[in-house]
Amino acid sequence: MPINAIVWGENVHEQKNATVREIYPDGMHNTIAAALNADAGIEATTATLQEPEHGLTEQRLAAADVLLWWGHTAHGAVEDAIVERVAKRVWEGMGLIVLHSGHFSKIFKRLMGSPCALKWREAGERERVWVVNPRHPIAEGLGEHFVIEYEEMYGEHFSVPEPLETVFISWFAGGEVFRSGLTWRRGAGNIFYFRPGHETYPTYHDQTVHKVLRNAVKWAHNPLGRYTAVHEAPNVPVEKALEPIVERGPKLHRPGEAGYR
């Protein structure tokens, strides 16, 4: 079965900005989905902010293997209930790929537990992306570096938790560097942050970027299925302890009673 991927796009700049609309007449989300669908092992569909429940219903997320997230100007418009719904699915094993300005999205900050802040500059700079973990599956088929001719600069310090792995580091023409490909795991879910993708530049038409995104979807996919036990916090009775024990002292909860959350 192909990997079921959802590309979530804010779909605001495409409607309001003529430059973005010219570069991405079908929307960035559809451009990214088309790049993913070039691989027979991936079946990508899209969802946008404007749809009911932002296109991320319980049923749709339950069937999703990987969610890709691009947002910028309307982070605050994303409903908190949907953010919690997505976080729940990531903990259960759905992969999450956060793109570019999605570093300030509610879902990324929710899962990172940090400000996710950075330096930035819009100047159409050359970005040289160095592959610092060449044996990582996300870097499969890449050389030691690749160049994106026009991009927005992101610079350190990037206030995220220490990553599980660093796959890419970027250098910009202005001199700054940035950890531009990072992985984490939250619960059973694999998370990848990929820096390139400013909306006024044609980054998502770049064939190397397409390769990275397809590799990332395959890496983020957890084939073991949904792990719902991640939410459970059972009160284990004394008589079910693995080794015989004698109950001693007072306790707050009655046998079988649920704990506080």
Rank of each mutant, 00 (worst) to 15 (best):
residue 181 G to M: 06
residue 148 I to F: 08
residue 197 G to K: 06
residue 235 N to R: 13
residue 139 A to F: 01
residue 77 A to S: 12
residue 56 L to R: 00
residue 90 V to D: 01
residue 47 A to S: 05
residue 98 V to E: 02
residue 55 G to V: 01
residue 223 P to Y: 12
residue 174 G to T: 02
residue 133 N to F: 00
residue 214 R to V: 14
residue 61 L to M: 11
residue 220 A to W: 10
residue 103 H to W: 04
residue 233 A to R: 11
residue 106 K to G: 14
residue 243 E to Q: 13
residue 183 T to Y: 08
residue 57 T to F: 10
residue 211 K to W: 05
residue 98 V to N: 07
residue 22 E to M: 02
residue 115 P to W: 14
residue 250 P to L: 14
residue 98 V to S: 00
residue 94 M to C: 05
residue 131 V to K: 13
residue 210 H to L: 04
residue 78 V to N: 09
residue 53 E to N: 06
residue 198 H to N: 07
residue 20 V to S: 01
residue 38 A to R: 15
residue 252 L to M: 15
residue 14 E to D: 10
residue 84 E to N: 13
residue 59 Q to R: 15
residue 222 N to Y: 08
residue 216 A to P: 01
residue 202 P to W: 08
residue 122 E to K: 11
residue 32 I to Q: 07
residue 97 I to E: 02
residue 47 A to W: 00
residue 179 R to Q: 12
residue 43 E to P: 00
residue 231 H to P: 06
residue 34 A to H: 09
residue 128 R to S: 13
residue 127 E to N: 14
residue 243 E to V: 13
residue 188 A to D: 06
residue 154 Y to N: 07
residue 64 A to P: 02
residue 256 G to S: 03
residue 53 E to G: 02
residue 24 Y to P: 06
residue 172 F to A: 02
residue 118 L to I: 09
residue 107 I to D: 05
residue 147 V to P: 01
residue 59 Q to S: 12
residue 14 E to W: 03
residue 228 T to H: 13
residue 175 G to C: 09
residue 158 F to R: 03
residue 202 P to D: 13
residue 9 G to M: 09
residue 141 G to P: 07
residue 32 I to T: 00
residue 247 E to S: 14
residue 168 F to Y: 04
residue 33 A to C: 09
residue 131 V to E: 12
residue 106 K to W: 03
residue 59 Q to T: 03
residue 3 I to H: 01
residue 60 R to V: 05
residue 208 T to R: 02
residue 109 K to N: 13
residue 37 N to K: 10
residue 192 F to N: 05
residue 87 A to C: 11
residue 227 Y to C: 10
residue 15 Q to T: 06
residue 255 P to V: 05
residue 161 P to S: 03
residue 218 K to F: 04
residue 82 I to K: 03
residue 15 Q to P: 03
residue 79 E to Y: 08
residue 142 L to E: 11
residue 137 P to A: 13
residue 15 Q to Y: 08
residue 126 R to E: 15
residue 1 M to R: 11
residue 7 V to M: 11
residue 122 E to M: 11
residue 26 D to W: 14
residue 217 V to M: 05
residue 206 D to G: 07
residue 196 P to R: 02
residue 260 Y to G: 14
residue 12 V to N: 05
residue 152 E to Q: 10
residue 186 R to K: 14
residue 242 L to H: 08
residue 233 A to C: 14
residue 9 G to E: 04
residue 139 A to V: 13
residue 17 N to Y: 09
residue 189 G to E: 04
residue 195 R to N: 12
residue 95 G to W: 01
residue 49 L to K: 08
residue 13 H to Q: 10
residue 38 A to G: 12
residue 111 L to G: 07
residue 64 A to G: 00
